[in-house]
């Protein structure tokens, strides 16, 4: 399916020797020239990654131990920022909100993505497969900003088309974005609506590449479609499920655009995620040290959850 081959270990490459078996000195000179060329062509990427990713990584952690208002020089404050985070209800609750929203988005994205992938995989006509694959991918072509704009209109309490249809069938209007739980559920649904295509496409690719002999063997042994799905297919694609979960979770934990645009983190602080608090702290209140500390905590949370997923996967993921 994928044209990208599994990674080959760098050490597996055979040593390059001169085909003619020339003297060692020549080989060494060639090797040196090759190394020089290597350094030359990695230098642009190394420069940009070092300056704009690696250095900021280190600086972000370092800044966490400083107080800095951008105008006066940074002042070392030790662990003060982290102590402040623990006592700062707004920050603590924003981490809770982040986890809640991320968990909701990932669960919907996985369950719906997997369900749709299984159903599409059962279709026999290629045209049907192509139609559904295109359809479920389309939301990903809009930017999250654009999605937040039109979904904001559609979920508007008074004028929105969603409440219009609810009323039309005799249901009351729902305060989608103006009540605490309404806003949480709506943002989960809107983010998942856009991202389902991502997990869906991955699962379809994995299901399509399942070895037919295994499926035939399951059928021979008298396994019905449900048992084949849960007993054979899902275990076989579990590495893909793990990967999709990890990627979806890392993205969801950084949720910013949708709540920032649709609810401004509200009502109250109902949808104020950690990244929104970081934005306000850093770029509105100009507390760069404190914002960096929040960023560091978020990074640790993201890495810890990713690690936990891999640990948990040892129990259920199945590698051939």
């Amino acid at each position: 399916m994928s044209t990208l081959a599994p990674p080959r270990s760098g050490n597996a490459r055979p040593l390059r020797t001169d085909p003619g078996g020339r003297p060692r000195r020549g080989t060494r000179r060639l090797a040196r020239r090759e190394a020089g060329f290597g350094f030359l062509i990695i230098s642009p990427a190394v420069l940009f990654v070092a300056v704009f990713t690696l250095a900021p990584m280190i600086a972000s952690v370092a800044l966490s131990f400083f107080s800095w208002d951008v105008i006066t020089p940074p002042r070392f404050v030790g662990l003060d920022n982290f102590e402040r985070i623990v006592r700062d209800d707004a920050v603590v609750s924003s981490f809770g909100t982040t986890l809640l929203l991320a968990f909701g988005i990932v669960v919907v994205q996985l369950v719906v993505g997997l369900g749709l992938a299984v159903l599409v995989n059962q279709r026999r006509r290629p045209a049907a497969k192509t139609f559904f694959r295109t359809t479920f991918y389309l939301p990903l072509l809009a930017s999250t900003a654009a999605v937040s704009i039109f979904m904001g209109y559609m979920f508007d309490m008074k004028f929105g088309v969603i409440n219009y249809y609810l009323n039309a069938v005799g249901l009351p209007s729902v305060p989608w974005l103006t009540s605490t739980w309404g806003a949480i559920v709506t943002i989960i649904l809107i983010a998942a609506w856009q991202q389902v295509g991502f997990t869906f496409v991955m699962f379809v690719a994995a299901l399509t590449s399942l070895p037919t002999d295994v499926l035939e063997a399951a059928a021979m042994d008298g396994a019905g479609p449900v048992r084949t799905l849960f007993g054979v297919k899902i275990p076989l694609i579990s590495p893909t499920i793990l990967f999709a979960t990890v990627v979806a979770m890392i993205n969801a934990l950084q949720l910013f655009d949708q709540p920032f645009i649709m609810t401004k983190g509200g009502p109250g602080t109902a949808t104020t995620t950690a990244t929104i608090v970081m934005y306000q702290t850093g770029f509105q209140n100009l507390q760069f040290g404190y914002a960096s500390a929040i960023a560091s905590v978020l990074l640790v949370i993201i890495l810890a959850i990713t690690g936990l997923q891999f640990l948990a996967a040892r129990k259920w993921a199945f590698y051939r």
């Binding site: 990654v49 300056v51 704009f52 990713t53 690696l54 250095a55 900021p56 990584m57 600086a59 972000s60 800044l63 890392i250 934990l253 950084q254 910013f256 990244t275 970081m278 850093g282 770029f283 760069f288 914002a291 960096s292 960023a295 560091s296 978020l298 990074l299 993201i302 890495l303 990713t306």
Partner: peptide
């Protein structure tokens, strides 16, 4: 290896130093 390690780090968590640079 360093490249792989930086791949794990989300942009949002390093945005403040990036802004300063």
């Amino acid at each position: 290896g360093v490249f792989l390690a930086t791949m794990m780090v989300p942009l949002q968590t390093i945005i403040i130093p990036v802004f300063v640079i």
